[in-house]
Amino acid sequence: MIESRPYALGIVALVVALRGGARADRIVAAVLAAMWLWTGVAYHLLHFTVINPAAWLFGAAFLGQGTAFLAVAARSRGLPFALSGGGSRRIFGLVLIAYAMVLYPLLGRVAGHPWAEIPAFGVTPCPMTIFTFGMLLLASAPVPWWLLVIPALWAVVGGSAAVLLAVPQDWVLLVGGLAATTFLVFGKRQMPVRASAAS
């Protein structure tokens, strides 16, 4: 079942990131914080612990990631976004965002899974992590390494569902997530151009 509120938050974060501006970093970080915190509590701690005791560890990791994004949201220019620039990095980010929000559930349906069983955007770990990578790729400055550790680890853990649980759409989490991490750590970054610096 598709829940509209996470999509609304995701669209707000995407529009704000593409427009850039002084508050874009805080808004995007706050949206990502909400998604990670909610998924950590509602999915891992309240739901998945019944099935897998390791979910306690996963839940704690997701709460830690959500707290990290809250820390970014509280800082000034902690994760800047600019109106333009980014090149292939930005294109890659937009592809991952579109995949997480649109293609992920559609591919799940094509694979034969009922809508009710398809991991929902924004409130389940795998599509939400893909979306996170996409948003970080839109940043116009280097992303702090400590924001990448847990998403990269989950790309491996969650991506294993592509094989173990027959969730083919999670191949993008595994391959795309690790590629995005490599891009963010080693790829060329375009620093934001601030009008105030030219004045």
Rank of each mutant, 00 (worst) to 15 (best):
G87T: 13
P114M: 08
A13M: 09
V28A: 01
A60D: 06
Y104A: 06
A161V: 05
Y104F: 15
I11E: 04
G78A: 09
A30P: 12
L14M: 13
A34E: 12
G78Y: 03
V172T: 10
S84G: 02
V163Y: 15
V123C: 12
Y43M: 06
L32F: 08
I118A: 00
L45S: 00
V72R: 07
P114R: 06
T129N: 15
W56P: 00
A166P: 03
A116R: 14
M101C: 13
L137G: 14
L153R: 04
L79C: 09
L136Q: 05
T181A: 15
W56Q: 04
G86L: 08
V28M: 01
F69S: 04
S196W: 13
L147P: 02
A195E: 10
L70T: 08
A13E: 06
L32A: 07
I118Q: 06
R109F: 13
V193L: 14
W56I: 13
G134Q: 03
G78E: 06
P127T: 05
G86D: 10
I2S: 12
K188S: 13
L70I: 15
A55Y: 06
A13I: 06
F121Y: 15
R194A: 13
S199D: 11
F92H: 07
S140F: 01
L18A: 02
T49L: 08
L148D: 10
A17I: 04
L70H: 08
G177T: 08
